[in-house]
């Protein structure tokens, strides 16, 4: 379509009335302007986070423990970095196997059946639950009994990740050619082995990419962690015991004391660190899915 437009535009140019030409130009300006409207704030924001974050950044900033209160100068954000990775990692450990298995049911067994449609609908409903409500849910269900722990945060994040993983995995499984399944079944392979050894590996790059995007999204979440993980100033790698903290929680806590230079610098430093972590995951996801695209083009899948 883009190829046909220039020629038609050129031949019609002269016969167009000024009004029609103006309206078309106005519409074009709207489309280009809309993109600019969205990207200008992004540029300002990223620029400011990098500049303000670099001021706080140093080796000790990412390796030292947190000060006991946010208003004190010095210290680093190591516990928050570790907390982010551990809590998000454990959430992925819970949500990914469950989500992939559920997606296998939807695509390989359920199809358009009643149960599958119900699960699909409920998974859509679940993806609409606000993250703060997910936090309240885990608070009422888990934290009230077990106390503030990293695991509470992991459970809340896992609930947020699950519908994303289900949806993206099902979409990837749908792209796996039917001929692959037929070939494997024709060779006498039972269906479950066909799924595990043929279908899943064929869809793997796309599934991994979707999972990594879900992890990146979860790593930036704050609201579900506010009521579930508590706070700590030292590194805690155990999600099952003791309170924990994350980069997002630290940004939120330090933002309450922005008049203190120490808290301000720490907030921006933590923001830069978090953005870098999220970006690394997002870019890795893009890289993996890029490989998927080239592989399917060459027909090796």
């Amino acid at each position: 379509m883009t190829a046909t437009q220039p020629s038609s535009a050129v031949t019609l140019q002269r016969s167009l009335s000024p009004g029609r030409r103006a309206r078309n130009a106005l519409a074009t300006a709207w489309m280009v302007g809309a993109l600019a409207m969205a990207l200008v704030p992004l540029a300002f924001l990223v620029g400011y986070v990098v500049r303000a974050g670099m001021k706080a950044f140093s080796w000790s900033f990412i390796t030292n423990d947190l000060p006991v209160v946010t208003t004190l100068p010095g210290g680093g954000i190591a516990p928050a970095i570790v907390g982010t990775l551990v809590i998000t990692g454990f959430a992925a450990l819970l949500a990914v196997p469950l989500g992939v298995l559920a997606a296998i049911y939807l695509n390989e067994y359920g199809g358009k059946g009643r149960i599958a449609s119900l699960v699909r609908f409920l998974s859509e409903v679940m993806s609409g639950v606000p993250s703060v409500v997910m936090g309240l849910f885990i608070f009422t269900l888990y934290t009230l009994r077990e106390g503030l722990q990293g695991l509470g945060g992991s459970l809340a994040l896992a609930c947020l990740m699950l519908p994303i993983v289900i949806r993206s995995t099902e979409e990837m499984l749908r792209l796996v050619p039917v001929e692959l399944r037929q070939g494997s079944l024709a060779l006498g392979c039972p269906q479950w082995r066909t799924i595990v050894t043929v279908v899943l590996p064929a869809g793997a790059p796309g599934i991994v990419s979707g999972v990594m995007l879900a992890i990146a999204r979860a790593a930036g979440e704050t609201a579900p962690l506010l009521f579930t993980i508590g706070l700590t100033s030292t590194t805690n790698v155990n999600v099952f015991k003791g309170t924990n903290t994350t980069l997002s929680a630290q940004i939120f806590a330090n933002a309450q004391n922005m008049v203190f230079p120490a808290a301000r610098d720490r907030a921006w430093g933590a923001a830069l660190t978090l953005v870098v972590i999220v970006l690394v995951f997002s870019l890795a996801a893009r890289f993996v899915s890029g490989r998927f695209a080239t592989r399917t083009q060459h027909g090796t899948v």
Binding site: A38, L39, L42, L45, V46, Y48, V49, A216, A219, G220, E221, T222, A223, S248, I251, F252, A255, A267, W268, A271, L274, V275, V278, L279, S282
Partner: peptide, 13 residues
């Protein structure tokens, strides 16, 4: 990229 920026960073900015 716009979607990847965490909510808390938007709020801070």
């Amino acid at each position: 990229l716009l979607a990847a920026v965490p909510s808390v960073v938007y709020g801070l900015w």
